[in-house]
Computed example of a mutant assay.
Amino acid sequence: MKLQHYLGGLEDLGPATFEKRVFVEEWEKGIFGIHTAMMALSPQLPLPATPSTFHTIWTWADLRKGAESLNPFDYFKFRYYEKWLGGISGYFIAHGYITEDELDAKTAEYLADPDKPLPAGGDPAIDQRVEQYLAQGDSPKSDAGPAPVFNKGDTIGVKDVPTIEHTRLPGYLRNHTGVVETVYPGNYGYLCDTGPDGAGPPMPVYCVGFDPQQLWPGNAETNFTIYADLYAVYVTEPDAVPAPVVKAA
Results as ranks from 00 to 15, higher is better:
3 L>T: 15
151 N>P: 00
178 G>S: 00
118 L>A: 14
33 G>Y: 08
25 E>D: 08
93 I>F: 13
230 L>K: 09
98 I>L: 04
216 W>D: 02
206 Y>H: 08
183 V>I: 09
61 A>M: 06
144 A>I: 01
9 G>E: 04
150 F>N: 05
117 P>D: 10
240 A>M: 03
192 C>I: 04
54 F>K: 02
173 L>H: 00
172 Y>E: 06
226 I>M: 09
97 Y>S: 09
236 T>M: 04
28 E>H: 02
83 K>S: 08
197 D>Y: 04
115 D>Q: 12
112 A>C: 06
226 I>P: 01
39 M>F: 02
197 D>F: 06
27 W>A: 14
121 G>D: 12
216 W>E: 02
145 G>K: 07
233 V>M: 01
93 I>N: 12
65 K>A: 13
130 V>A: 13
193 D>N: 09
205 V>E: 10
79 R>N: 13
2 K>W: 08
5 H>P: 02
20 K>F: 05
187 N>K: 06
60 W>Y: 13
180 V>M: 09
189 G>L: 00
162 P>G: 01
84 W>H: 14
92 F>S: 10
54 F>W: 12
240 A>F: 00
199 A>W: 01
158 V>W: 04
82 E>L: 07
84 W>V: 06
28 E>S: 00
197 D>H: 09
247 K>M: 11
221 E>L: 08
229 D>S: 15
11 E>W: 13
103 L>G: 01
23 F>D: 02
15 P>D: 03
68 E>R: 09
245 V>E: 11
26 E>R: 15
46 P>Q: 11
34 I>D: 02
52 S>L: 01
94 A>W: 02
120 A>L: 13
211 D>T: 05
75 Y>W: 08
33 G>H: 11
65 K>P: 00
66 G>K: 06
184 Y>T: 09
36 T>Q: 14
37 A>K: 12
179 V>E: 13
7 L>A: 10
236 T>A: 01
22 V>W: 08
40 A>H: 05
190 Y>L: 06
3 L>S: 15
34 I>Y: 04
34 I>W: 09
4 Q>H: 12
234 Y>S: 06
12 D>V: 12
2 K>Y: 09
6 Y>S: 15
42 S>K: 11
30 G>K: 04
73 F>C: 03
101 D>A: 14
3 L>I: 15
236 T>G: 01
121 G>C: 05
68 E>N: 11
